[in-house]
Write a protein that binds this DNA or RNA. Structure first.
Length: 804
DNA sequence: ACTCGACGACGTTGT
DNA sequence: GTCGTCGAGT
């Protein structure tokens, strides 16, 4: 559908000369001061999107168009939510209590906590992260003798999640084949299990709160009237369910259109949609325009981040995508330096080159280390980079490894805490019933699970049903939990955790373990995390007090005025309570411990709290979204890797890879390096890959090919090995390439060195030639040295002499 | 009941 | 190369 909505004129009387608005460009100003009504902001990378969002909120509040309680702002990541919070607090000196700002999952959790009864959940319901979910599914499979060869738990989890993201309960899933029927059957069993244990997974948070709003008109209308302004960040990443959820909050549907008094401001960039694999639906942007009859649409195309050459590369690249709303970024910063492209013989050489460039950047050009980012397509690539950086003594920080709350010792501690809150939580029970070891083995657990299944009760409750010595041990564990619960009743969060760490024996266990030092420190860190969480959330102070704005008073009033609430259904438990008290703020009805457990589940935490350290930043391209750096390296730009081979099967997949590349490029402010290797260790074997097609899509005027250090002049032509690789798919094992390279080189190979010979190297000594590839100056030999392992050596550089 | 070693399968992106 | 599972040994 054409995007022809008129621009709102910024010169309206709605936009007085406020300091708040200073420095905004005309489009930003227009977006910030939009009148009532829905709007779509197409915000290009680096166009000041977050600034627009926060200033918009500040402006609404400042002008009195809304109170904090009338605003809901949704983001995808906790990082973005926090950032918004911080910036907003800097703009406005008022309390933002009552404003709903957070991630989709966070807000859904908030909704479900406030109305847990209506949602059919216990007040103490716990949230399953991916690990928990997987172990829950595995347990389910075991209990029902599922063939996990045919139905791998991981795949089942993915199936359940995608059903939920489409808003489908088991009964709604169409089953045309026996395979799907089986999976749906398991889906139902999984749901039953979760319900029985009082736990919800990530997708369930969304689906459950969607259903809550859908099935309770009075409640829905209450929130519809409360939230006059809904702001959604990264709208292109919303999935079907999130969009439906938003629609319910925005107003009632009539004739395919939304009617209501709220204004939805969706901010997004279709070119940065990189989460289709997990259900994101860019089509939501078009649907939004249509179903909300969006009157205002603004494009933010001025980029304040990157130099011209970088931006030109990004623009040219993304032009190759067909499904676009259309957008072109501009800058007035000047062209800057060319984008540098480097080709390395191997992934190891790539890493070596990278280290040298980084050293030059920091030493000669004065780039701070934390302003340098290394981006890669998949996590596995970080290893080589890390080891080279480590050897070179360059401090670095890897994002996206095991995060704090995902560490085993932390999960153990949390499992105890969760059991105190929710004794039904079998996942937590199983995690810690024998950790530290209590002599409760697999057989005892099996017996226990059998009893629990027959009785339909939780594992903890079933401990009373098991006979014999095993039963006694199980009951003493039960007693341990009960004693802990009593001991921490009414205690502060800090004391609670300290007590649990001690009484559970966790601390002692790690203290006895000589490898457990780091884990002990992490447990201490958990206490610190809890402490700062309590301070941040302000528990114990004015936690109960509601802001004295219209929220507290107007919301119930609005409810009584609304026609639909005249005949309140008395069966709805929530409506028998004063709404202002229940709906208002999270945490209000939550104990500090409960809130902390939610916090731990919803934000797995940064993986390393070493922020502020002067370290090079390593992360996947996905993780880099929303960040920016002075200098960016994008490595591993090879066919099959980036674009990833799994994404090449369909066109949509390739376009998403291209958007991913677009995101990566637009992270750079001043300097951008792109590199690829002719061969790399992948999945434990050497593979030979063509340079990524994305490199060919960049305008040659903006790029500069660096000559390979020590390998003679750079040759833009495909190498012999690479040329052959096109005939055998993109990656194949080294045996194939050796064969083909051998044939290719039979006549062309200049040197006298051939495969199988023993050669001598000044540094490495004698070694056997495993393979030869390349021609002329680029010819290389893979030589296996007894003491140094196998190495690729350039024949033009390394002085190899044939031994016999 | 627990620990350890061998073995095989499996390798994107993540709230 | 890593992870999880399985079997044997203590």
């Amino acid at each position: 559908m054409p995007l022809s909505a008129p621009l709102f004129s910024p010169s309206s009387p709605n936009a007085p000369d406020l300091p708040l608005l200073h420095g905004l460009n005309p489009e930003q100003l227009a977006a910030v001061t939009l009148p009532q009504g829905h709007a779509l902001i197409l915000a290009g990378a680096g166009s000041g999107k977050t600034r627009v969002l926060t200033t918009r909120i500040a402006w609404l509040l400042h002008m009195g168009y809304a109170s904090p309680g009338g605003i809901m702002a949704v983001t995808f990541t906790n990082k973005a939510a926090k950032e918004m919070q911080t910036r907003l607090s800097a703009l406005l000196p008022i309390s933002l209590r009552g404003m709903w700002m957070g991630t989709f999952h966070g807000l859904c959790n908030r909704l479900l906590r406030a109305h847990h009864q209506a949602a059919g959940l216990p007040a103490t319901f716990q949230i399953l992260d991916m690990q928990d979910q997987l172990s829950a599914i595995k347990r389910l499979c075991k209990a029902f003798n599922v063939d996990t060869e045919r139905y791998p738990p991981k795949q089942l989890g993915w199936f359940f999640a995608s059903c939920k993201e489409d808003g489908l309960r088991p009964k709604d899933v169409p089953t045309h084949d026996p395979d799907t029927r089986k999976k749906v059957e398991l889906y139902q069993l999984y749901e039953d299990q979760c319900q029985r244990e009082g736990v919800v997974d990530f997708a369930e948070l969304l689906l459950r709160s969607y259903e809550l709003l859908r099935d309770h008109p009075a409640l829905r209308q209450h929130y519809q009237q409360r939230f006059r302004y809904l702001l959604v960040d990264e709208f292109q990443d919303t999935n079907k369910l999130q969009y439906q959820w938003l629609k319910l909050l925005a107003g009632e549907m009539e004739d395919g259109r939304i009617v209501g008094t709220s204004s939805v401001l969706a901010v997004g960039d279709d070119d940065q949609s990189i989460y289709a694999f997990r259900g994101a639906r860019v089509g939501n942007m078009q649907d939004f325009l249509r179903e909300f009859a969006v009157p205002h649409q603004i494009k933010l195309e001025r980029n304040y981040r990157s130099h011209g050459n970088i931006l030109d590369c990004a623009n040219a690249l993304i032009e190759n995508n067909s499904q676009r709303l259309g957008k072109n970024l501009t800058t007035d910063q000047g062209a800057g330096e060319p984008v540098r492209i480097h080709e390395a013989p191997t992934d190891l050489d790539e890493a070596r080159w990278l280290v040298e460039e980084i050293q030059a950047l920091t030493k000669n050009d004065g780039f701070p280390r934390q302003e340098i980012a290394l981006l890669y397509r998949s996590n596995a690539q970080s290893r080589v980079l890390e080891s080279r950086l480590f050897n070179a003594g360059i401090p670095y920080r890897v994002y996206g490894g095991l995060r704090f709350f995902e560490r085993a010792e932390i999960k153990h501690a949390l499992a105890y805490l969760r059991l105190l809150e929710n004794p039904q939580d079998d996942t937590s029970f199983l995690r810690v019933v024998n950790f530290p070891a209590r002599g409760i083995g697999a057989r005892s657990i099996e017996a226990l699970q059998e009893e629990a299944r027959q009785t339909g009760c939780s594992l903890l409750d079933a401990t009373t049903l098991v006979s014999g010595a095993a039963g006694a041990k199980l009951r003493s564990f039960h007693a341990l939990i009960d004693v802990m619960r009593e001991a921490v009743a009414g205690q502060s969060l800090r004391h609670t955790i300290e007590h649990v760490l001690h009484a559970s024996g966790l601390q002692e266990h790690y203290r006895a373990d000589k490898e457990g030092q780091e884990r002990l420190e992490n447990l201490d860190e958990l206490i610190n995390a809890a402490e700062s969480f309590v301070l941040q959330e302000g528990f114990g102070k004015d936690a109960i007090a509601l802001p004295l704005d219209e929220t507290a008073s107007a919301a119930p009033a609005a409810l009584t005025q609304s026609p639909a609430s005249q005949g309140i259904d008395p069966r709805l438990p929530l409506l028998n309570q004063p709404l202002a008290g229940t709906d208002a703020d999270t945490g209000e009805t939550l104990s500090p411990l409960q809130a902390f457990l939610v916090h731990a589940a919803l934000e797995a935490g940064d993986n390393q709290a070493q922020a502020g350290q002067d370290a090079v930043q390593l992360m996947t391209v996905h993780a880099s979204k929303g960040l920016e750096f002075d200098a960016v390296f994008i490595v591993g730009l090879e066919e099959g890797l980036f674009p990833h081979e799994n994404a090449l099967s369909d066109k949509g997949g390739l376009e998403e890879e291209r958007r991913l590349m677009y995101v990566a490029i637009t992270r750079a402010r001043q300097r951008l390096y792109l590199s690829h290797a002719q061969s790399r260790m992948l999945h434990g074997r050497t593979s030979f890959n063509l340079p990524s097609r994305f490199l060919d899509e960049l305008p040659s005027a903006c790029v500069k090919h660096l000559s390979a250090r020590g390998f003679g002049s750079f040759s833009p032509k495909k190498e012999a090995a690479s040329a052959y690789s096109t005939r055998f798919s993109n990656t194949f094992n080294s045996e194939n390439i050796i064969k083909s390279a051998d044939t290719a080189l039979a006549s062309k190979n200049t040197g006298s060195i051939t495969k199988g010979q023993t050669v001598f190297h000044a540094k490495f000594g004698e070694g056997r030639v495993l393979a030869i590839e390349g021609v002329g100056d680029d010819a290389r030999a893979q030589v296996n040295f007894p003491r140094h392992g196998s190495k690729w050596l350039a024949l033009a550089i390394a002085k190899l002499t044939v031994v016999e």
